[in-house]
C-alpha cells in the first residue's frame, strides 16, 4: 500500500458539531481505480472537495505525489495534476462542447491578454495545439460529432461524458469522478465502466465516488467505505463486500433478526 499517489493522514473536517470527515487515513495507489463508497452523508463529496481545495480541512494532512496540498487554492491543485468531475454537473453552458474541453487545456498553455488580443504567432500555434488535443479527448469519449453544439444542449448522459473529457484535457495524474453513473441508463453505465478502465490504462489514477455498487465492484482495485466520516472498511471489492460492518451500514444495524 505504500507509494500511493495520494495520501491522507488524520484528515478531518468539522462543520460545527458535524464531523463530516472524522480523522481519516487513506492511500490511493498509483495507476489504480480506488472507489469511495458509503451511505448518503458519509462524507464522500466532502473528501473530494478537500482534495481539490474547494473546502479547507479542519486538520490533518493531504499529500499528493509527495507534496502537501494543505492551504493550496483549487486552481493550484488542478495545476499539480488533480482533476475532477462534479456530482451536480458544472459544465460551461455558455460554451460549445469543444470549447469546454479546450478550456481543460488551460494549465498547459500560457498566452495572456496581450498575446491573445494581438494574436501573436505563439498564441496561434498554441491555439492549434489546444484544439487538436481537445478534439482528441472528445474522440476518446466518443463525443467528436457533438463538438460544435452548445454544452447545455447535450442530454445528461453525454454531459457527464463531456465533464470527463474536459477533466482529461488537463492531463491529470489523478482523476476524481463524483458519481459519474448517476442518472445514466444501464447501457450507458456499461459503456462508462469500459471508459473508466480505458482511462486507467492511460496511466491515470482514478478515485471514484459512486452509488452503483455493481459498477464499483466491477472496476475497482480497492474500495474505501465511509460512514459518518469514518473509515469502516478498506480493501479489495471482495473483502469489502463480506465485511459485516459494511453490510450493516448499507442495510441498517442488525437487530437480532438478521
Amino acid at each position: 500500500m505504500d507509494g500511493g499517489i495520494l495520501k491522507g493522514k488524520g484528515l478531518h473536517k468539522f462543520f460545527g458539531g458535524l464531523r463530516a470527515i472524522d480523522f481519516l487515513d487513506f492511500i490511493v495507489p498509483e495507476g489504480k481505480v480506488k472507489s469511495v463508497i458509503g451511505p448518503n452523508g458519509a462524507g464522500k463529496t466532502t473528501l473530494f472537495n478537500m482534495i481539490t481545495g474547494v473546502i479547507p480541512p479542519t486538520g490533518g494532512i493531504l499529500e499528493f505525489a509527495g507534496r502537501s496540498l494543505n492551504g493550496l487554492k483549487p486552481h493550484v491543485i488542478a495545476c499539480l495534476g488533480i482533476s475532477r468531475t462534479f456530482q451536480h454537473l458544472e459544465l460551461f453552458g455558455n460554451m460549445t462542447v469543444l470549447e469546454n474541453v479546450m478550456l481543460g487545456r488551460h494549465r498547459q498553455t500560457a498566452s495572456g491578454i496581450l498575446s491573445a488580443g494581438l494574436r501573436l504567432p505563439r498564441m496561434r500555434r498554441e491555439e492549434k495545439e489546444i484544439r487538436e488535443n481537445a478534439l482528441q479527448e472528445l474522440r476518446f469519449m466518443g463525443l467528436e460529432d457533438r463538438a460544435m453544439l452548445s454544452a447545455s444542449a447535450l442530454p445528461l448522459g453525454e454531459q457527464k461524458l463531456l465533464e470527463i473529457a474536459r477533466a482529461l484535457a488537463t492531463q491529470p495524474k489523478l482523476l476524481l469522478l463524483d458519481e459519474p453513473a448517476a442518472g445514466l441508463n444501464t447501457r450507458e453505465t456499461v459503456k462508462l465502466s469500459e471508459t473508466i478502465l480505458r482511462i486507467r490504462d492511460r496511466g491515470i489514477t482514478i478515485m471514484l465516488v459512486e452509488h452503483d455498487m455493481s459498477l464499483v465492484m466491477e472496476i475497482s482495485d480497492e474500495v474505501l467505505v465511509l460512514n459518518y466520516g469514518k473509515k469502516i472498511a478498506e480493501g479489495s471489492p471482495r473483502e469489502v463486500q463480506r465485511n459485516p460492518e459494511v453490510i450493516a451500514a448499507y442495510l441498517g444495524e442488525e437487530t437480532g433478526n438478521a
Binding site: V54, A78, E90, F92, L103, H106
Partner: peptide
C-alpha cells in the same frame, strides 16, 4: 461566467 467552481478545478 459559466461555473466558477469548475473553472478553478480546471486550473483557471
Amino acid at each position: 461566467h459559466g461555473s466558477e467552481i469548475a473553472a478553478n478545478a480546471m486550473g483557471v
